[in-house]
Design a protein around this nucleic acid. Structure first.
Length: 480
RNA sequence: GGCGACAUAGCCAAGUGGCAAGGCAGGGGUCUGCAAAACCCCGAUCCCCGGUUCGAAUCCGGGUGUCGCCUCCA
C-alpha cells in the first residue's frame, strides 16, 4: 500500500513520494525561546519525532530541520521585564527546550538552526524579494506585498478579499495593504539589531523559517509542518516569500497537528491554564505522556485531563508489565530450541498491522492498539508457557515497534543495584517464612505496609516479585 | 461575516458502505491461603431528522451542540 499523508494544501490524503528517492527533507517549526514550552507545543514536537522515526523505519534517510527562533518581540519583552538581555533569555530557554525534549525522549533534529545565526541568509532573501517587486521599503522597515503573489491564500484556502474582510487587525498606515507583513523590522532604541541595506534592524518571524529551511534543505522541502495555528498566517507567508523568491514549489506536503485543550478549553495565559512540560515531567514519566499524546490521531483535538493521564499511566504499566515478564523469561537459562511458528506468525501479523496503521497518515492510535493486542497474545502464550527463545523474539518485536513510537526507550528499571532491592528482599524473605508457617496475618501486614509506601508485592509460582506502584498524581490546579 | 474541525460505551479513542479496534473504569469467571499480575467472558438504538443504497457510524441534505483559525500563538 505505502505511506499516505494528509496534505493541508490539497486537503486530501496523498500517496507519499519524496523528491529524492530514499531521502526525506522535513522542516518543523520550532519554538520561540521566551519561556518553557507547554504540552500544546509538545504535541507537534513529539508527533514529528514519531514521523521521523517511522520514515526511518521504512527505510528513508531523513534530513530533519527544526529552527530555534531566538530573536522576537516576546523575547525582548521578557528580557525587559527581567532586566536582562534578549540573548540571555534566548540562551536560557533554548537550553531548557533541549533539556525537556531530551527528557521526553524526543530525538534531536539533524540541524537546529538559530535565527540569529542566519541573518545574512535572511537579508539575501529579502533583497531578492525587494528587487523582484514583491517587497517594499518603508522608512527602515521592509514589507512583503501580498498582492504581488497571485496565489496568496492557497494553503489556508482564503482569498485576499475574504481575509481583508475578516481582518480585525488595526490598520497600519505604513503598509500598502493591511495584510502585508514585515520582512525586516527597523530597530527601536535598545533592541537587538543587525546591520542591513535598510539600516539596523531584525528579521520578521516568517522570513526566518523560509531562509533557514531553504538554506539547509534547498528550495523544495518534502514535508513542512507545525501546529495547526501556523497555517495562517505563518505558513501562508512562508509560501509567498519562498515561492516568489525562487519560483519553485516550496513544500510538497504540509502537515498540521491539532490543538491540545485543557479540561475542554484552549490553553491561554489569561486563563492561567498553561501546563509546561517542565511541570509535567514532575508528574508523569515520559512514556505516559507519549502514550497520552499519541493515543489519538494527530489531526483531532486532544483534551488534557487528570483522568486521561491516569488511564495512560495504567495503560503504560500494562505494556511494561508484559515487557518485563518477557524479559524475565528470555533471560532464563533454557535450551535454545527454535521458536514455534505460532510466535513468529504472531509477530509478523502485528508488524503488518502496525505498518498499515502508520502508513495510514500516521495513525498512532491504531499502532498503539496493535501493541496492546500483541501484549495480550504474548501474555496468553506466556501463561501456557513459552521458551526463552520465543520470549526473546517477542521482546525484540516490542523493541522494534515500540521504538518507532519512542516507547521502551527509557523504561525505568528496578534498580537492583540500590539497597532498596536488598531491603525489600529481606522483608519478602521474612514474609515468605510467615506464609510457609501459614501466618498470613504477618504476611499480609508486610504486604500492606509496603503498599502504603508504593511498593506492590506479587506472589508468583517462581517467588515473590516487587514493583513500584504506577502512581498517578493529579496535577490539581496546574503548575505550582 | 469568511474558512475549517469535531460529536462513537461511564471515561479516552480507532473506524469513510458489508456482523462497531484498542486502553481505562465496572461486572462475572480461571489461577491464588488471600491479594496482585495474567488470561477468558460480559457491555454501544455510533447527537437528531430526512434521503441515497440490498446494506450507512461511514455517502448526501437539513438541524442541534462543542471547538479552532481569520491578530502573537504549537
Amino acid at each position: 500500500m505505502g505511506l499516505r499523508v494528509f496534505d493541508t494544501m490539497t486537503r486530501t490524503l496523498r500517496d507519499f513520494e519524496s523528491l529524492e528517492p530514499g531521502q526525506v527533507r522535513m522542516y518543523v517549526c520550532g519554538p520561540t525561546v521566551y519561556n518553557y514550552f507547554h504540552i500544546g507545543n509538545l504535541r507537534p514536537f513529539l508527533f514529528f519525532d514519531v514521523v521521523r522515526r517511522y520514515l526511518e523505519y521504512i527505510g528513508y534517510d531523513v534530513l530533519y530541520v527544526q529552527n530555534i527562533t531566538d530573536v522576537d518581540d516576546k523575547i525582548i519583552n521578557r528580557a525587559n521585564e527581567a532586566g536582562t538581555t534578549a540573548a540571555e533569555v534566548a540562551e536560557a530557554y533554548t537550553r531548557a527546550f533541549f533539556t525537556d525534549l531530551d527528557a521526553m525522549g524526543v530525538r534531536r533534529a539533524t540541524v537546529h538552526p538559530r535565527a540569529t545565526a542566519h541573518i545574512p541568509q535572511m537579508i539575501e532573501l529579502i533583497e531578492k524579494l525587494v528587487s523582484g517587486g514583491h517587497a517594499y521599503v518603508q522608512d527602515g522597515d521592509v514589507y512583503y506585498r501580498v498582492r504581488s503573489f497571485p496565489s496568496y491564500g492557497k494553503l489556508s484556502h482564503q482569498s485576499l478579499d475574504e481575509l481583508a474582510a475578516g481582518a480585525r487587525v488595526a490598520v497600519d498606515e505604513r503598509k500598502a495593504d493591511p495584510l502585508d507583513f514585515a520582512l525586516w523590522k527597523k530597530a527601536k532604541p535598545g533592541e537587538p539589531s543587525w546591520p542591513s541595506p535598510w539600516g539596523p534592524g531584525r528579521p520578521g518571524w516568517h522570513i526566518e523559517c523560509s531562509a533557514m529551511s531553504m538554506n539547509y534543505l534547498g528550495p523544495t522541502l518534502d514535508i513542512h509542518a507545525g501546529g495547526s495555528d501556523l497555517v495562517f498566517p505563518h505558513h501562508e507567508n512562508e509560501i509567498a516569500q519562498s515561492e516568489a523568491a525562487t519560483g519553485h514549489m516550496f513544500a510538497r506536503y504540509w502537515m498540521h497537528v491539532a490543538y491540545v485543550n485543557i479540561e475542554g478549553t484552549k490553553m491561554s495565559k489569561s486563563l492561567g491554564n498553561i501546563i509546561t512540560v517542565r511541570e509535567l515531567r514532575r508528574l508523569h514519566e515520559p512514556a505516559v505522556l507519549r502514550h497520552f499524546l499519541l493515543s489519538s490521531h494527530y489531526r483531532t483535538p486532544l483534551n488534557y485531563s487528570g483522568e486521561a493521564l491516569a488511564a495512560s499511566t495504567r495503560a503504560v504499566g500494562r505494556l511494561r508489565g508484559t515487557y518485563q515478564r518477557l524479559a524475565r523469561i528470555a533471560s532464563e537459562p533454557g535450551h535454545s530450541a527454535s521458536p514455534a511458528a505460532a510466535v513468529s506468525e504472531m509477530i509478523e501479523s502485528a508488524r503488518g498491522r502496525f505498518v498499515s496503521a502508520m502508513d495510514d497518515d500516521f495513525n498512532t492510535a491504531n499502532a498503539i492498539a496493535v501493541l496492546f493486542e500483541l501484549a495480550r497474545e504474548a501474555n496468553a502464550a506466556a501463561d501456557t508457557g513459552i521458551s526463552p527463545a520465543e520470549a526473546s523474539l517477542l521482546l525484540h518485536a516490542f523493541d522494534e515497534l515500540g521504538s518507532v513510537l519512542g516507547f521502551y526507550t527509557s523504561a525505568p528499571s528496578q534498580s537492583s543495584t540500590s539497597n532498596v532491592d536488598g531491603i525489600i528482599r529481606i522483608l519478602t524473605d521474612i514474609r515468605q517464612k510467615a506464609r510457609q508457617n501459614r501466618d498470613f496475618a504477618t504476611a499480609d501486614r508486610i504486604r500492606e505496609e509496603l503498599q502504603k509506601l508504593g511498593i506492590i508485592l506479587e506472589d508468583t509460582p517462581e517467588g515473590t516479585r516487587w514493583r513500584v506502584e504506577d502512581r498517578f498524581e493529579d496535577g490539581g490546579s496546574g503548575p505550582a
